[in-house]
């Protein structure tokens, strides 16, 4: 991304932000509450349009159309996980995995990996916040998409699960994946830091 600026409402969140991420790299976005971490992630995912600057994607064969890159190569995990409260964990996981390009087999593997098999038949509303987050992470693991955009991914996880999540991220990076994560606590893997507060613009 180059010279990126985002305005929400009447407020300039940041401007002149340059950041590039290449295969195998992780970036930890930091910044105070309201500094624009979530907005930046949503702009990268194409959900909001930046006020200035642009976001470009490159694949092994050169430049990619942003629509193609986003529809096949980007996972966004925000504060809301998109699970329907009255459907079972397995139904919801399977839909999200198939929707983002994975298969039933890969969903089963991810479910085992994140220790979700016991919960598969439960309705989503009966899961705890940490269990829901593991369900959401299973989607990332099960469908192969190279760029993970994570918004506070670890907040509801317990210590043991944070370690598992660290392994999953390390594995994703080792496979040539990329991670951009908005965090308050440090990530359990090596990551380049990017502080949004330093890209703060003058108020409009």
């Amino acid at each position: 991304m180059q010279n990126l600026a985002i305005i929400r409402g009447e407020r300039l969140l940041f401007q002149g932000l340059d950041l590039s991420v290449s295969a195998g790299e992780a970036v930890a976005l930091t910044g105070a509450n309201g500094s624009g971490k979530t907005s930046l992630l949503r702009a990268l995912a194409g959900l909001i349009r930046p006020h200035a600057g642009d976001v470009r994607f490159e694949g092994p064969q050169g430049k990619l159309e942003p629509e193609d890159a986003r529809s096949q190569g980007v996972h966004l995990l925000g504060h809301q996980d998109g699970f329907k409260a009255t459907r079972t964990a397995w139904e919801e996981l399977l839909f999200q995995v198939q929707w983002t390009g994975g298969t039933e087999a890969s969903a089963r593997q991810a479910s085992a990996r994140l220790d979700l098999d016991r919960l598969a038949g439960l309705e989503v509303r009966k899961l705890s916040a940490g269990q829901r987050r593991r369900l959401a992470l299973a989607r990332l693991v099960a469908s192969p998409r190279s760029l993970w955009l994570l918004d506070e991914p670890m907040a509801p996880l317990d210590t043991a699960r944070r370690a598992v999540f660290g392994d999953l991220m390390a594995q994703h990076l080792a496979g040539g994946g990329m991670i951009i994560a908005a965090v308050h606590d440090p990530l359990p893997i090596a990551a380049r830091a990017c502080d949004l507060s330093s890209a703060m613009g003058p108020s409009l």
């Binding site: 980007v74 998109g82 329907k84 409260a85």
Partner: peptide, 17 residues
């Protein structure tokens, strides 16, 4: 419902427009 629970974000990043 899809808008409120974040599913619409996921749908916007799906394999079909």
């Amino acid at each position: 419902r899809d808008y409120e629970d974040g599913t619409l974000d996921l749908l916007a990043l799906g394999p079909v427009p």
